[in-house]
Amino acid sequence: MSQARSSLPRTIAAHAILIAYTIIALFPVILIVMNSFKSRQAIFRSPLMPPTAETFDLVGYRTVMVQGDFFLYFQNSLIVTVVSLFLVLLFGAMAAFALAEYRFRGNTLTGLYLALGIMIPIRLGTVAILQLMVASGLVNTRTALILVYTAQGLPLAIFILSEFTRQISDDLKNAGRIDGLSEYRIFFRLVLPLLRPAMATVAVFTMIPIWNDLWFPLILAPAEPTKTITLGVQIFLGQFVTNWNAVLSALSLAIVPVLVLYLIFSRQLIRGITSGAVK
């Protein structure tokens, strides 16, 4: 390490702060995963201990597999999240491109209107959404959830992506136009690849609230075949008795897909966050 730019006390202080933060952030997650492998008594007697040979118990996972249609819930969550994510990214990028690229009457106004959703939570419209879904016969379908989540994710996506789209060189798009590429080809082949880091950022911010949401599944799709995992786990949380083994196991399993998606996006994500910092 170069001497001119760093001193030992400062390095130690920086690491101490970062390590402390990491521990605080990871503690609940580790606690959940750890306890999901323990017997019920062990969870209550020594919640902070890692599983030992005698306290190790897979009863939680067994319950989850047997009781309730866990894999169906899992599948529902995954379908709803991935499809919503895809639609948010696709339509978000398209809207951002249109707003940044074309001069038309009401451009700024449209942009503001689309960004309004950032400030107004979609849950305020729950009653109307429910009536809408009932009227269109979409209650208890995954489509209902996908539509709502797409609407929920779009404002922020458009807001972030239009900022990035504006930075893409006009010359490149114009070169495409002179070579006879259609506006769609220009968007999909020239613009979209350059938006990848920004889209990864948006993907992570969009994905996590969808995966964790309990509100809309409970209201729009509470039926057994369309339950998502966050809703599915609720069957283990009783008013009087809670099957903690099962709850913890289900939650541990639910972390996996988000983790996988995050790992896929994270390389791009870091570039998205730091882009523009250095030219």
């Binding site: 114009n174 070169a175 136009r177």
Partner: peptide
Amino acid sequence: VPPAKRGIAMVFQTYALYPH
């Protein structure tokens, strides 16, 4: 007439090559 049909070619300051 759209740019591609005008029988022109253009060279830009920023090169504007297709990166892919």
